[in-house]
């Protein structure tokens, strides 16, 4: 699990084309710059030679025509280079606008919240719709249509290894697409300042083989199993009778609020609090007791549960695989 993605460490589709364009522009610019330096050097040498000639009162009659010729050459060269830039950019833009092989895209609705991500996988069968938070799984080699929505302010969806940035705008539906050509695990983050905890608004991206993706999908579709041991049962009651139930969903239970992230399979996620902490029992406990110490301003309030309740709650949350 790396923290900072690189746009040059591409893993597919659009990002590949963008990286290629970036390299192309860099190379053309560097070559142009070097040529300019050489031309400047030559001009300086010539100027010195001309000054010597002028001292000898040997001014050629062709100064003005030479000047006209040189300026014309420079203007044409500049125009040509700019034309190359524009053509390359337009070609790349066209290539990444929509996938050629998008016959059967997977459609995922992304909703940005202050400060977490909600992913809703669409399916032709409504009962197969899947909602998850802060964790995006995609199958390798299949284009994914991403619909971008926002619940509050403008956010920006950015997986550096897969595509450029695209904004999530409240009241507006943006669309983009991604495709992973190799399996991998990446960290993606919000790329538009969105308030206090913008820096701690990340999510995990897992690209895996279609078989493993399907396995994950089916397991995520199942409801939470009722806890069996007594401590977890008590934790379940704490969850349902205290502050948790006001904001979170655990499918298969009474909890069904969509204010905060969905928790039906929280124990299977690599991180908590939108990519802020590793998903360990200790971190989860710290987070529930006082999220404001970790992400000041986050919408989740501090919860002063007695230790016994807290332990039971953690036991329960750990059963939510």
């Amino acid at each position: 699990m790396t923290w900072a993605g690189s746009i040059f460490d591409t893993a597919g589709g659009p990002a590949e084309r963008i990286a290629r364009l970036t390299w192309f522009l860099i190379i053309v610019s560097v070559v142009t710059y070097l040529l300019l330096l050489v031309a400047t050097g030559i001009a300086m040498r010539r100027a010195r030679a001309r000054r010597l000639r002028e001292q000898l009162a040997d001014t050629g009659p062709d100064t003005e025509s030479r000047l006209t010729r040189n300026i014309s050459i420079a203007a044409i060269a500049t125009t040509l280079i700019l034309l190359v830039y524009v053509t390359a950019t337009a070609r790349t833009g066209k290539a990444i606008a929509w996938p050629v092989n998008a016959r059967q895209p997977l459609t995922i609705e992304v909703t940005g919240h202050q400060w977490w991500w909600q992913f809703r996988y669409r399916d032709s069968v409504p009962s197969n719709w899947l909602t998850t938070s802060n964790e995006l799984h995609i199958p390798v080699g299949r284009p994914v249509r991403v619909i971008l929505l926002s619940n509050d302010v403008i956010h920006s969806f950015w997986i550096p290894e897969l595509h450029g940035k695209q904004d999530l705008i409240p009241g507006h539906r943006n669309t983009t697409w991604i495709q992973a050509d190799r399996p991998g695990v990446w960290k993606a983050r919000c790329a538009e300042f969105c308030g206090h905890q913008h820096a701690k608004m990340a999510f995990d991206v897992v690209a895996e083989s279609p078989a493993r993706f399907n396995q994950w999908y089916v397991s995520q579709l199942t409801s939470a199993q009722p806890p069996t041991d007594s401590s977890a049962r008590r934790g379940h009651d704490v969850f349902m009778q205290r502050t948790c139930i006001m904001c979170h969903t655990i499918s298969g239970t009474q909890a069904g609020s969509s204010v905060g992230p969905e928790l039906t399979h929280i124990a299977s996620r690599p991180s908590i609090a939108a990519g802020t902490l590793r998903n360990t029992r200790e971190n989860l406990g710290r987070w529930i007791l006082n999220p404001q110490l970790i992400k000041p301003g986050v919408r989740m309030p501090p919860n002063a549960f007695p230790p016994a309740d807290m332990n039971a709650l953690l036991d329960y949350l750990e059963t939510l695989k």
Binding site: Q241, R242, T243, I245, M246, N303
Partner: peptide
């Protein structure tokens, strides 16, 4: 009762 913190 118990479902909303004092601050909220």
């Amino acid at each position: 009762r118990n479902r909303i913190t004092a601050n909220q």
